[in-house]
Write a protein that binds this DNA or RNA. Structure first.
Lengths: 140, 140
DNA sequence: TATTTGCATTGTAAACAATACAAATTTATA
DNA sequence: TATAAATTTGTATTGTTTACAATGCAAATA
């Protein structure tokens, strides 16, 4: 039932389905690696040879606008996308560049900005550092 | 005492001073507007006509690497820099695009990732939404 | 005072991400 | 089926960032 899940997700967020949109959402749901536009484009290009990169850009942006995906700007080089939209934090390893999901700290619920001068729509929390497997490697 | 402060800051972070580096740090310390590379470049170009944009890129990156400045990737369009390196959060208004400092919520000290699989070097917390002055405007 | 050394700066070229836009295609609707 | 609307495609373009080679400059050494 591969794209059933994807189709459901699109409909749940009020996004008109199409072959491309289903494929992209399906990819997001199946690959929790926080892919970039290019990664999605290259991966899906095998199945959909006519796929245009512009479509991937537009579609992922559309997903983010509808709340069906999260746009992550943690790495300054490239924007990544996350199909998991429930609240969670991220960790980026400065050595290998990988982006990983992290559970939100328990205390986080109350962590809203002290000032009342803003209407908060999104909260982003992430860490940067060195992941375990990189820390184990000898070379600095 | 304009660049005295800047000079001190550079030395404190082990950065060799130079005319350009002092000027750029001085700008960062005086303008808490989270400027982009281009903003710094344009602003300082008046005083240092020979300044190269590459130098601004290199210098700000150098500052960030030495912990003398913070690199902010909140806006997916452009990287911003913050001369304030003490812990604080940010708020970005989706309408006007402004980036503002926000006090860290009191509970935040304990907010370290639950997993022990990472060596955390940086913690980033920010919010996106609508700022007060934009919320007051009539037009959506 | 010359020479050397090494880092900093400059400026151009190139890589790359992202967007704009118009044509082509597909889908929905009458 | 015809028509309109929405989506996709592909190219051209913009703009940011990096790579790199050449130059400048200042402190150290001869």
């Amino acid at each position: 039932m591969t794209d059933r899940n994807a189709l459901d997700t699109l409909q749940r967020y009020g996004i008109h389905p199409s072959v491309q949109r289903i494929a992209i959402m399906d990819y997001l749901l199946k690959h929790c690696t926080h892919p970039t536009v290019d990664e999605v484009y290259v991966a899906l290009g095998k199945d959909i040879p006519t796929l245009s990169k512009t479509t991937v850009y537009n579609t992922l942006r559309l997903f983010a606008e509808h709340g069906a995906a999260q746009m992550l700007t943690i790495d300054e080089k490239k924007v990544c996308f996350d199909g998991v939209v429930t609240s969670h934090a991220h960790f980026m390893c400065k050595r290998c560049g990988r982006l990983m999901d992290v559970q939100l700290p328990g205390c986080f619920q109350e962590c809203q900005p002290a000032e009342a001068d803003f209407i908060v729509e999104e909260t982003h929390l992430y860490y940067k550092g060195v992941c375990k497997s990189c820390a184990h490697k000898v070379n600095a």
